[in-house]
Design a protein around this nucleic acid. Sequence first.
DNA 1: TCGTTATCAGTAATGATTACTATTATTATA
DNA 2: TATAATAATAGTAATCATTACTGATAACGA
Lengths: 121, 121
Amino acid sequence: MRYSRQRELIANMLKNRKDHPTADMIYASAREIEPNISLGTVYRNLKQLSEEGTILTLETQDKKIHYDGDVSRHSHFLCDKCGKIIDLFQPAETPKELNQLGLVVSSEKCVYYGICPDCQK
Amino acid sequence: MRYSRQRELIANMLKNRKDHPTADMIYASAREIEPNISLGTVYRNLKQLSEEGTILTLETQDKKIHYDGDVSRHSHFLCDKCGKIIDLFQPAETPKELNQLGLVVSSEKCVYYGICPDCQK
DNA sequence: TCGTTATCAGTAATGATTACTATTATTATA
DNA sequence: TATAATAATAGTAATCATTACTGATAACGA
């Protein structure tokens, strides 16, 4: 993969913020620094960076993909009402500790990613 | 919520199958029994049923929502290559046990849902 | 049985994401 | 350092899963 100023900008922006922005939010921020960057470029690079493992994705109920520049091991809390995303770093991931953070948890979704036995052949 | 033949059909179909179909897959199956059911009806009812907690959703990388009629506590394995979804019932959710199932796990995503402190006020 | 209204079928609209194309920028190599 | 090969880009059009809309139908309490 070749170097590109646009990709570097996008990656750095994600590393320097603690929220979980969508593509259009990143596009808006990137425009302030690189006024001619296009939305397609943002999408393409977000896809590349996430496939590389440089950033993470978070598929939520709002039909938009949220991106996370923090690839350290942590989970997320998603508010069913306002859609807010809260980082959960260990060891705050037991029902007790979640309650102590003031979070009322109603459900939990855990997904593992990798290669299945069929595709390993 | 009123009774509807269409909603009952959709719910029953999901309860009776062990895969994780998308809306259009459910639409196709439903058409075989209820030939005039519309795609909009399928989407509307899937949304209602999942908001109720009768069924679960699984947001994957393929941009389609997958539905699961099994609401018992379990996780999922998602193959990065073929997109296959595999149910993981406890206690098969430790790295060791996942390996014993022949699954090479490269990453893991855990999300909790509920109401955040702000929205509880 | 009747009135209210949730639900439906069918279709149009939405909107996030991807594809396309001519141009520009990176990088390996002479 | 100049050059050729080709990723990557900006700008725009297309895709397609999902939602919204509308007039007709069906559930169900009174």
